[in-house]
């Protein structure tokens, strides 16, 4: 699941090497933490969070297929 987030993030940022994800389990909810270079924050969030929302939608679709609950945090 975190690989999916990585693929998306790496393809839209300017510094793909700085893309990192961490995974933790929070009471049955999988939490994916995405971090990117400071200059790339806007690239994964977008105006009014539009890009972040789109990434979350795709992650959610994949989680639905696997019957899991996933949350994406961007920091």
């Amino acid at each position: 699941m975190e690989e999916l987030v990585e693929v998306i993030a790496k393809n839209i940022v300017d510094q793909p090497k700085k893309v990192e994800t961490a995974l933790r389990n929070d009471d049955g909810v999988i939490v994916i933490e995405l971090s990117v270079a400071d200059d790339d924050m806007g690239k994964v969030i977008g105006k009014q969070g539009r890009i972040a929302r789109a990434i979350r939608k795709v992650v959610k679709a994949s989680a639905t297929k696997e019957g899991k609950k996933v949350e994406l945090k961007i920091k």
């Binding site: 839209i12 539009r50 890009i51 789109a54 990434i55 939608k57 795709v58 679709a61």
Partner: peptide, 10 residues
Amino acid sequence: GETLDALQYL
């Protein structure tokens, strides 16, 4: 169509 729209946007 929300997922399709998200894929399209990305």
